[in-house]
């Protein structure tokens, strides 16, 4: 995907005769400023996620949801991943690799998490970085909307996995 995009962008620029390298450099300069700007937000976010993860609170929350998961046929091992997915993409990646290792990617849970990862997003990271970058403190219904769309994504992944792979 990346090589294709690079070629398209550069060829298009070449055809339109613009100063390609100058543009790249000025864009990259803006990129550096962006990273510096979001670093403090990222630091704070990763700190709170790490504390929550290390405390074992996540496993505790997962246990609360266990009976409900059993009723709707939700794979229990995927509950911690479901919550982690909303806060941290690196942590959820390591959880998904654990699931692939223990159950195989072609198991029910393996297929389910593959689909679920494609329709969910790291909500708290996105909200913090984007809103903090413009100093917005009141976000109205943004969190509710994001949670609802991800909830729909998760539930439909479960249903779709069952239908598609005949479980």
């Amino acid at each position: 995907m990346i090589p294709v995009c690079f070629i398209l962008i550069i060829l298009h620029a070449y055809v339109n005769k613009i100063a390609i390298y100058d543009s790249f450099v000025s864009g990259a300069k803006e990129g550096i400023i962006t990273v510096f700007k979001i670093f403090p937000t990222l630091l704070g976010l990763m700190l709170s996620v790490a504390i929550l993860r290390e405390s074992g609170a996540l496993n505790f929350i997962s246990k609360i949801f266990l009976p409900l998961a059993k009723i709707i046929g939700y794979p229990c091992e995927a509950i911690p991943l479901t919550f982690m997915r909303l806060v941290s993409s690196s942590a959820s990646t390591s959880l998904i690799l654990d699931i692939f290792k223990n159950h195989g990617p072609d198991s029910f849970i393996g297929r389910f998490v593959s689909i679920m990862m494609s329709c969910t997003e790291t909500i708290f990271y996105t909200i913090s970085v984007y809103f903090m970058s413009v100093k917005i403190t009141k976000i109205r219904y943004t969190l509710a909307g994001a949670l609802i769309s991800n909830f729909f994504g998760i539930i439909s992944s479960l249903i779709i996995t069952k239908i598609f792979f005949h479980y």
Binding site: F6, I9, I10, N16, V25, S26, G27, A28
Partner: peptide, 9 residues
Amino acid sequence: GMMKIAENS
């Protein structure tokens, strides 16, 4: 940088 190229072109 790449996006800047795409923007300018």
